Computed example of a mutant assay.
Amino acid sequence: MRAKSPANLMTLESAPEYAREAIREMIISGELSSGQRIDQRELAKKLELTTVPVREALCWLEAEGMVKRIPGRGVFCRAYTVDDIEEILEVRTAMESLAAGRAAERMSMKEKKELMKLAHDLTDVTSNEEFLKKHVAFHRKIVEFADSETMMSIWNFTHLTSQVLVNLAAQIWPVYPHAHIDLAEAIVSGDKERAAKAMGDHILPSYLDRLQELRDKYGDEPILQEQPM
């Protein structure tokens, strides 16, 4: 990652907020890899900041579950086991199923048209990168339409984690286009139960085979960043 200029701090509330966003981006991209110890002085130098806002940013990221502080050893990027991943997916499935039901009851006609457009856009992508961007926008919009700050907070964590996983084991956790039109139609129908079931059927079952592949490869061990051959 190319560090942003401190001039960009003018658009943010504080140096710690800038550091938090920059470090989060580095974790998501894989520049800071799973299980890696974070050198706070080196990181501060790269971001052209002092270590004070970097320390504060890492405290925020620890609360978000993206880094882990080990007394006497330092701060490390979180390493995930297969059980961790499965638990996160179960939480995401439960939360987004609730969000889909709430959205179905609350959406205006304009919002329904917007969601259907996002679903159709997902069928017209030319790269996995484009799909991932539009996929995140689609699922985020459903949670926005559910109108729940708690759900949005949970969604932010689970989707950030999903993006980290793409970099952890790309060969067996691929990003690939898949349809969302049936799911969108269930939500815009206004039927709460139908929408919730459609979302539940959409998320976790699609990951079961990949979870088993991860379990076969890593067992109970943390999944660390794959290095180029």
Rank of each mutant, 00 (worst) to 15 (best):
L61R: 03
T150K: 10
Q227T: 10
K117V: 03
L211M: 10
I23N: 13
M199E: 09
A179F: 04
D83Y: 00
A196C: 04
H120K: 09
S5T: 15
R2L: 15
A137H: 11
Q40S: 14
G35C: 02
Q227S: 12
G101S: 01
A104E: 03
G200F: 03
A186S: 10
T158A: 05
A119P: 14
N8Y: 15
E25L: 09
P53E: 09
L61A: 10
K4T: 06
A186R: 07
L43T: 12
D83L: 01
P205L: 05
I38Y: 10
E221I: 04
S33R: 04
W173S: 13
S33F: 06
L49H: 06
R41V: 00
F131L: 05
E193P: 00
M26F: 08
P177S: 08
W173V: 11
P6D: 13
H159E: 11
E62L: 07
Y218A: 04
A119T: 07
D39T: 05
P205H: 07
S97R: 06
L43Y: 14
L9G: 15
T50Q: 02
K217W: 00
L118N: 08
D39Y: 02
G101N: 06
R215P: 10
Q171G: 14
S108Q: 11
R55L: 09
I88M: 08
E31T: 06
I70H: 07
E213P: 03
K4Q: 13
V166H: 13
I85R: 06
E31W: 13
A99I: 12
W173A: 11
L160F: 11
A186Q: 00
S127V: 00
G65C: 04
